[in-house]
């Protein structure tokens, strides 16, 4: 077996939510290694813990137990400033509900992470325009989110996620609020970025269209990893399914 370089590693990762008297184990001893540059889909029914895992990997919430390493750095050891730096420069986030800032134009949304990163306004504007072109929205730069369709908003969100050339794109149900065709377009866009920019894509989803483009699929159930499928296994299965149809 070849040796991979891991960009994300989780060790004994658990998250327990206390709701009144009931304790819910959303994540239970999850150990997951994600390779640099791969496209991973975290699949599972709603309530399986995939969004919780997304939050832990993204440093958006603290685990009850266990550790998340990003580039071999223990995230729990980071100061608030270092964590903000990580979120700003190393990780790009994409959400089911797009989460664009409603009062800002498409271009302002895309340039906001660059402003935080210290780019000058001119540099940020140039790069933002370039990114909007990459996602096919060069004509929509001065539009507010409410003036854009769901698919277009998600494209802006993707451009924003790429703003500071992150090593990782974390997407939480990126196609969850989109119709079939628009969803497919976003998946293709993510795959293209994964190939062109060599960015690691980690996507929590229950959209089966994602399987096609994934290097690996991690199936999660009841807060635990059920199985991990490699690209090769997936292709065999897809082949079998196609074979059965004929």
């Amino acid at each position: 077996m070849s040796v991979y370089e891991y960009i994300v590693r989780t060790k004994d990762l658990s998250k327990v939510y206390t709701m009144g008297d009931v304790q819910v184990r959303a994540l239970d001893d999850v150990a997951l290694d994600i390779r640099r540059g791969e496209y991973v889909s975290i699949m599972g029914p709603s309530g399986s813990g995939k969004s919780t895992l997304f939050n832990m990997i993204g440093g958006l919430d603290k685990p009850t137990q266990g550790t998340v390493f990003i580039d071999e750095v223990d995230m729990a050891q980071l100061t608030a400033q270092e964590l903000a730096f990580l979120r700003c420069r190393k990780i790009g986030y994409i959400f089911q509900t797009f989460n664009l800032i409603p009062v800002m134009t498409a271009l302002e949304n895309v340039t906001l992470p660059m402003v935080f990163a210290g780019l000058t306004t001119d540099d940020a504007m140039d790069k933002g325009a370039e990114l909007l072109k990459t996602v096919g929205l060069e004509g929509r730069r001065d539009h507010k989110p409410t003036e854009l369709s769901g698919g277009q908003q998600q494209r802006v969100a993707t451009a924003r996620a790429l703003a500071n050339d992150p090593a990782i794109i974390l997407a939480d149900e990126p196609t969850g609020n989109l119709d079939l065709r628009t969803g497919k377009e976003i998946i293709d866009l993510l795959k293209r970025m994964n190939e062109e920019k060599k960015v690691t894509v980690i996507s929590a989803t229950h959209d089966l269209k994602m399987i096609d483009v994934s290097d690996r699929v991690v199936w999660i159930r009841d807060g635990q990893i059920e199985r991990i499928e490699e690209r090769a296994d997936i292709e065999v299965q897809v082949g079998q399914m196609e074979g059965e149809e004929h």
Binding site: A84, R87, C88, Y93, N99, I101
Partner: peptide, 16 residues
């Protein structure tokens, strides 16, 4: 709140 959460994901410090 949601906007604040988003801004923090983009790297905003609490002080921002």
């Amino acid at each position: 709140y949601k906007e604040i959460g988003t801004m923090k994901c983009l790297g905003a410090l609490d002080s921002f």
